[in-house]
Design a protein around this nucleic acid. Structure first.
Lengths: 144, 144
DNA sequence: TCTTGACCTCAAGTCGACTTGAAGTAGCAC
DNA sequence: GTGCTACTTCAAGTCGACTTGAGGTCAAGA
């Protein structure tokens, strides 16, 4: 009954139509039909898009997210994977906490050069020896 | 006196030589000379690389990091930027915390389908309306 | 009926941070 | 003097997630 035009879905989900087409091509969403040329979606796609958005912010790739749907289209989340991701998030959070403290310290440190501050140097050593951690990605956003 | 061969620097800093060349090309590091064709670095480059690594894990781009060095090569960190980054990190951490809790909930939730769990749906709504947050980048690692 | 504007397809481009490959060179051990 | 090997340069390729552009279609409103 209530089918949504791609433009409507784009508006409601807050993503460009091009992204919807891309997701469809990748098999992440399905259009329920066409109105002329135009894709129509049923409202459930909004939940699905929300789940995709959620997965993205949790750091899952689109491919991984694709595997989170059962053939019938319902989410079929692997609970072990979820827990694993939670653990991963936690590690990342700890890293970020250290970093945040260090940044604050560096900002407040009275040493004339940061290089003369023992705390800062200690931090550097840690960063250097721990190997480069996974950097958070900057908002990709529309190029240009 | 003690100058380091590029291979030595690579080994000590834990980055491939190609990365060092790339950083040099970008103006992030400087080689102190050559031994034949080979780049030589003085030991200070290790600190600099550590600082670069640190900046990367804090989420600064290489370009931003490039601006963190004074012309004399000493770090010249803009304290306001550091604080701003700390604030940004904090926000990101809060996001991650929410996400972690949600993942854990989803993993433990007894509802037959996640879609029937009110908590999960609430989470989805949040993810959907908040707009897609900055996803953490996955370890880039060597392609292939 | 005509226009308009939102959609369509498909190929190619973008972004950052590197890596890879081909072809060449030079210091050091023998 | 010969090899080996670790370096050199330069251009091009890679990765994921999209976006952009050119050229085309079509339903609905005037």
């Amino acid at each position: 009954m209530t089918v949504l035009d791609i433009g409507e879905v784009a508006r409601r989900a807050g993503v460009p139509a091009s992204t919807l087409r891309y997701y469809e091509e990748k098999g992440l969403i399905t259009s329920s039909g066409r109105h002329g040329l135009r894709r129509q979606y049923d409202p459930g796609v909004l939940d699905r898009l929300a789940l995709i958005a959620l997965g993205r912010t949790a750091g899952f790739s689109l491919d991984e997210i694709g595997h989170m749907f059962a053939p019938d289209g319902r989410p079929d989340l692997d609970r072990e994977k979820l827990v694993a991701k939670a653990v991963e998030l936690e590690a990342r959070m700890r890293e970020l906490a250290v970093l945040r403290d260090s940044l604050r310290h560096a900002a407040a440190c009275p040493a004339p050069s940061h290089m003369e501050c023992p705390t800062f140097r200690g931090l550097l050593r840690a960063a250097a020896t721990r190997g480069v951690a996974v950097p958070p990605k900057r908002t990709p956003g529309p190029p240009r």
